[in-house]
Write a protein that binds this DNA or RNA. Structure first.
Lengths: 130, 130
DNA sequence: ATAAGGGTTCCAGTTACAGGAAGGTCAAGA
DNA sequence: TCTTGACCTTCCTGTAACTGGAACCCTTAT
């Protein structure tokens, strides 16, 4: 299977598939003419990568997930631990974003948003909360 | 004031302050010996940048905020609009992260996390949701 | 004179690709 | 057979916002 078809089938871009080959996370076979060649199993692994990336795992995380996936003797606890770390990340980001949102929302509420130059947002940015 | 002191006073790192000088968002004065020199007002602007960045404004947003800040005839509506865009961004990210969290949490819950190789997380990544 | 602790510039590395140039390959039609 | 167009290849650059480090200059104190 050509790279284009592999990309389409796995939900990735051609650029990304080539990149995954370059960094060695998903090596492609080569035909005599140098073209990359993807088997059904390779496409499956690419789709695995696509899904893992879309769930916010880093490419490095994916490297680990892939080796766990390939290891038929793995312990599911190892995978669970990786996923839990991701959840913790997400929780941290959620907390941070919620706090940002609160601050910005209160600023926007305080700002009249008219033609005059008084602006509580700029005042706050300039040091109101030091 | 030396760069070190300016950095400390504004809550930035020396590297960052130098970077802001390089990209022109906050140009420093220079002494005869070539050292950067920061006035109280410069430090104030650096602190403004620090606060805006910590609220999730991009450096490019900050460029606009700075010019609005410097412009005494600005309309506060302009600033309000920028802040609103940021809030919308944040809402989008919150929704995305919440959805990720739901998925990961249900996977982690389904995974026994023991020594055996059966792992719903890997199964899902491998195509459970196609 | 020298050593410590500033400062300077410039270059590489980070993440996960995207864009684009230059050129090789393949299948089909005139 | 030649050409055309759609593929494919590698390689280089750029992205955002810095960080780390090398090589070197300046200042101050001992």
């Amino acid at each position: 299977m050509n790279i284009q078809q592999a990309a389409t089938a796995s939900g990735l871009t051609v650029k990304t598939v080539r990149y995954y080959d370059d960094i060695g996370i998903m090596k492609a076979d080569r035909r005599a003419n140098g073209y990359r060649d993807y088997s059904a199993e390779s496409v499956h692994k690419l789709a695995f990568l696509q899904r893992a990336r879309s769930l916010g795992f880093s490419v490095d995380d994916c490297r680990q997930l892939m080796s766990l996936y390939d290891d038929k003797d793995r312990a599911s606890a190892d995978v669970k631990a990786l996923a839990q770390i991701r959840i913790d990340d997400i929780n941290r980001k959620l907390a941070e974003l919620n706090s940002l949102k609160l601050t910005l929302t209160s600023l926007v509420t305080a700002c009249k948003g008219d033609d005059r130059p008084d602006c509580p947002i700029l005042e706050d940015l300039a040091g109101g909360h030091q």
